[in-house]
Write a protein that binds this DNA or RNA. Structure first.
Lengths: 201, 201
DNA sequence: ATTTTGACCTTGAAACTAAAAAAGTCAAAA
DNA sequence: TTTTGACTTTTTTAGTTTCAAGGTCAAAAT
């Protein structure tokens, strides 16, 4: 069927784009370069993606998907809700370390409706995963929480917020050196310590 | 004595500058305009301040000082440590609502050594105030905390971080509408609820 | 029918430039 | 010691050009 081949080519494009992005950064990568890597014409790319932004978004979605799947796996096979929450902090670190190299943010950092939409959906998915973990913690008797969804949202927001408040300067493109990142992770775990005590049964 | 008169003029300048900043924004205010408001020459301003940035910094320090004094007052007369922490959230809101209008950030948002220095000192002062409150809470038997300074820092960072993670977009100039601000405050208070439970004796 | 492409058009980000505005200086005056 | 007018220097703004990169399309290839 035609759509299979089409999807395959789409994947090849995303793969090539991802390779370029990780090596040179998204902002320094042109459509022509990606096309050349694939030994095809630039016009072909536009047969699979309406425009450059859509392609960037697709690359981001691809990485995000694997991130969320890892998180969901962690949430599903949870034996200790607390442990799952700690593990997610490490997962998130790996994800951010990986995708911040793509410099894909500078390029998507317009507040286009489409991008905000995706961002919102991703946020919601992260909330949901945390909600499930907290619910599991309630069932197992670890936690005592009135509104798991609200509590999960709060935890995610507070944790994410530390990425901005811990560094002395704030740049949306969020380039952090390893050292800064480690400081953030440390604070996130400290906060989680107290947060967990705060919702203990 | 000569320094008294000099300080008085300095104050007048800062007052005039503040007035302009609140009305038109710091970035739209020129040294000439401030001088004209004071019916003096621009050169006079340079007798009291080495340059424009120093003046902006002095204005900011002036506002910050009153903010910290309110906070310190709150910390000193604390009967309930928890209550003090809640009150500080409201104090901070008022402060931010006020000084964000000055647009003084865009202008100081270079990462000049001097500005970062002041920022760091302000952060430290806020940490110290919170540390004192938490220590008071320990003394009164409200809290049980191993390292009050670390805990205070964490609380401040987590609270501040919500200002960045709650909104969907992040802008350093931190212009927020009232509605956004209220959402942040709400999350800050929710977090404080759990945080306090997490450090309860 | 679907996919690919070369040739072409359009757009937006740098790279200059000139003019204006604002920052900053200083010797002399108050 | 403080103030200032007249001055120089720096920064911002607006206008222009240019060119690389984004994007389109009719025709060709599969």
């Amino acid at each position: 069927m035609h759509t299979e081949a089409k999807d395959e080519m789409r994947d090849k494009i995303l793969e090539a784009a991802l390779k370029r992005f990780t090596h040179y950064g998204a902002s320094k990568t042109t459509m022509n370069e990606i096309a050349d890597d694939l030994h095809c014409s630039k016009a072909s790319l536009y047969y699979y993606f309406p425009d450059k932004k859509a392609m960037h978004l697709a690359v981001l979605e691809r990485i995000a998907e694997s991130y969320f799947q890892q998180m969901e796996k962690e949430a599903a096979q949870v034996k200790s809700a607390s442990k799952a929450l700690y593990n997610i902090i490490d997962l998130r670190k790996d994800f951010i370390s990986k995708f911040c190299r793509l410099e894909i943010f500078q390029i998507l950092q317009d507040n286009s409706a489409l991008f905000l939409e995706e961002k919102k959906k991703a946020k919601q998915r992260e909330f949901n995963i945390h909600t499930e973990i907290i619910k599991a913690g309630i069932v197992s008797g670890e936690f005592k929480v009135k509104d798991p969804a609200q509590t999960a949202e709060l935890l995610v927001l507070a944790t994410m917020g530390l990425r901005f408040s811990v560094p002395d300067h704030i740049r949306e493109d969020m380039d952090m050196d390893e050292e800064m990142m480690d400081q953030v992770i440390e604070k996130q775990k400290q906060l989680l310590d107290i947060f967990i005590k705060g919702i203990k049964a």
